[in-house]
Simulated scan of single mutants.
Amino acid sequence: MNTIQFIGTTPKDLITEIKNALIPELREQLSKDFQPKEPTEYLTRSEVCELLQIDLSTLHRWRKDGTLTAYGVGNRVYFKRSEIDEYINKNKLL
């Protein structure tokens, strides 16, 4: 980082120096730290059954015993893709 002397510096020069020295560095730092958030992807019961290669009755049982969390909208049931992926990774064989 560059040093800035305030003696004999006009406000306009100071603003220009700040823009040239700090803003690109700050922009680079923020772009590393903050990434856009991906929207949540929801799967239907049939999509989850196909993904996990299970029967609908197994999915229903896993929902009842709390193995998987379901989200309802009206009469429809959905599962978060991220939670399904997390379940798969947590239960993979070593």
Rank of each mutant, 00 (worst) to 15 (best):
T58M: 02
V48M: 07
G8M: 00
I88V: 04
L59E: 00
F6K: 10
T58A: 02
P39Q: 07
K32Q: 08
E28I: 09
G8R: 03
D85F: 06
E28D: 12
P24N: 02
E28H: 14
F6E: 03
T9M: 01
L52H: 04
I23Q: 10
N20G: 01
L56H: 15
Q35S: 14
N75R: 15
N75T: 14
T40R: 12
Y71G: 06
L59F: 11
D65E: 13
L30D: 06
E50Y: 02
D65K: 15
S46K: 14
N75L: 12
L30C: 13
V77N: 07
Y71N: 04
Q35C: 13
R61H: 08
N75Y: 13
E28K: 13
I7Y: 00
P36S: 06
E83N: 12
I54D: 00
S31Q: 05
K12D: 02
I15P: 00
Y87M: 10
Q29N: 05
K80A: 01
E38V: 10
C49N: 00
P36D: 04
K19Y: 03
I88G: 00
P11D: 02
L56M: 14
E25L: 14
L68T: 04
V48Y: 09
G74I: 04
L59W: 11
E50W: 01
Y78Q: 09
L43Q: 04
Y71K: 11
E47K: 13
E83K: 11
R61Y: 10
G66Q: 01
I18T: 08
K12I: 07
T9D: 04
S57I: 15
V77E: 07
D33A: 03
R76L: 10
